[in-house]
């Protein structure tokens, strides 16, 4: 970065700013895309072991090159567009999905100093972007001109609207505890040992947030939008080749995003759980480790739980999660302002 700055001296300001930001974006995106690739590998391996089989083990040593082979295969396949499909919307849909999934990473603080932008309303920004991701699914389902895809899109729209409210209320709890919408400030509010993490005072909200996150990313057991056994593959049934790969990337980028957010909001972000011996490990690694732990749960869920029925999903979202969050926000407010326990949250 220093080298770049000295090289660019004398150039107009806006060129410098743009170039530096492009470099930063690339520095964030390349590890992220690698993580996405190897999350698919980890998923297949882990679910394999959980089902007492080996999983992918042919390409490269112990199957380590499998994701690269998969990516190459998808690149070389033909991207078919169905007849009577809406061509532009059909191609725009995966782009919307991936844009929403990747743009949210702009405000994720990996450590105290390692982040692209430090905006004050970071939490709102993330909520807004994740809510835009649903358009990829809806447009894909509608533009495909296929009944299965359309059913998947409808299911996904209803599900995401239901769970976004619960998710938003869970974040209101975090916002009350931290007193800030800035993700960096939220992590700084959890400084100290692991007892200071928001997961303890906000435990019900933590559960609601995480389960809503699983539902928002359309993952098992909430994957009715795909529902292989009923509607083939749901919204992306007509997609092939690269366009399918982009949807796939977006799904996994979203999963990693939800894991990272859970680590930031509830598990203390880059802070080590206990002070002295554990601070040797750099803070960025603590953050990645926590996110990876949460990510493991996503994969574990898929191997463990059967798919929810549609009406059960709606019931859980509207009749269980929203009341739970509303009550806990009131309880939280009471504890913060009327009891001496208020210091727990700051």
């Amino acid at each position: 970065m220093e080298l770049m700055l000295s090289y660019m001296q004398g150039w107009p300001d806006w060129i410098q700013v743009t170039l530096i930001n492009v470099v930063k974006i690339v520095v964030i995106l390349i590890p992220l895309l690698l993580a996405v690739a190897y999350t698919t590998y980890a998923e297949r391996k882990l679910i394999g072991y959980m089902q007492i089989r080996i999983g992918p083990n042919r390409v490269g040593p112990r199957g380590w090159l499998q994701p690269i082979a998969d990516a190459l295969k998808l690149l070389l396949k033909e991207a078919a567009i169905p007849t009577n499909a809406n061509r532009y919307l059909f191609l725009v849909a995966p782009v919307i999905s991936i844009t929403a999934a990747l743009a949210a990473w702009a405000v994720i603080p990996v450590s105290d100093t390692l982040l692209l932008t430090n905006i004050d309303a970071g939490l709102l920004y993330i909520l807004a972007l994740t809510s835009m991701g649903v358009y990829g699914v809806i447009i894909a389902g509608w533009a495909s001109n296929s009944k299965y895809a359309f059913l998947g899109a409808m299911r996904s729209a209803a599900q995401i609207v239901a769970y976004e409210i619960a998710m938003g209320f869970a974040l209101v709890g975090v916002l009350m505890a931290a007193g800030s919408l800035n993700l960096g400030e939220i992590v700084r509010g959890q400084q100290g040992s692991f007892l200071d993490w928001y997961v303890w005072p906000l435990f019900p909200l933590f559960l609601v947030y995480f389960i809503s996150g699983v539902a928002e990313t359309n993952r098992a057991p909430f994957d009715v939008a795909e529902g292989e056994s009923e509607i083939v593959a749901g919204f992306h049934v007509e997609y092939s080749g690269m366009t399918f790969a982009v949807f796939f990337l977006a799904e996994y980028a979203n999963i990693i995003l939800i894991s990272a957010l859970t680590a930031i909001l509830f598990l203390g972000g880059w802070h080590a759980p206990i002070d002295t011996p554990f601070t040797i490990v750099p803070p960025g690694l603590w953050f990645i480790g926590k996110a990876a732990l949460v990510l493991f749960f996503f994969l574990w869920f898929r191997a463990t739980f059967p798919r929810y029925r549609y009406d059960q999903i709606m019931r859980l979202g509207w009749k269980v999660f929203i009341p739970v969050t509303l009550v806990w926000i009131a309880v939280l407010g009471f504890f913060m302002f009327f009891t001496p326990l208020g210091h727990m949250f700051h």
């Binding site: 920004y125 909520l127 649903v134 358009y135 509608w142």
Partner: peptide
């Protein structure tokens, strides 16, 4: 951001 969150993220999804 609230315009995007409420109108784009929720109202228009239901509308669509």
């Amino acid at each position: 951001i609230v315009l995007v969150l409420v109108y784009v993220g929720a109202v228009m999804v239901l509308f669509l």
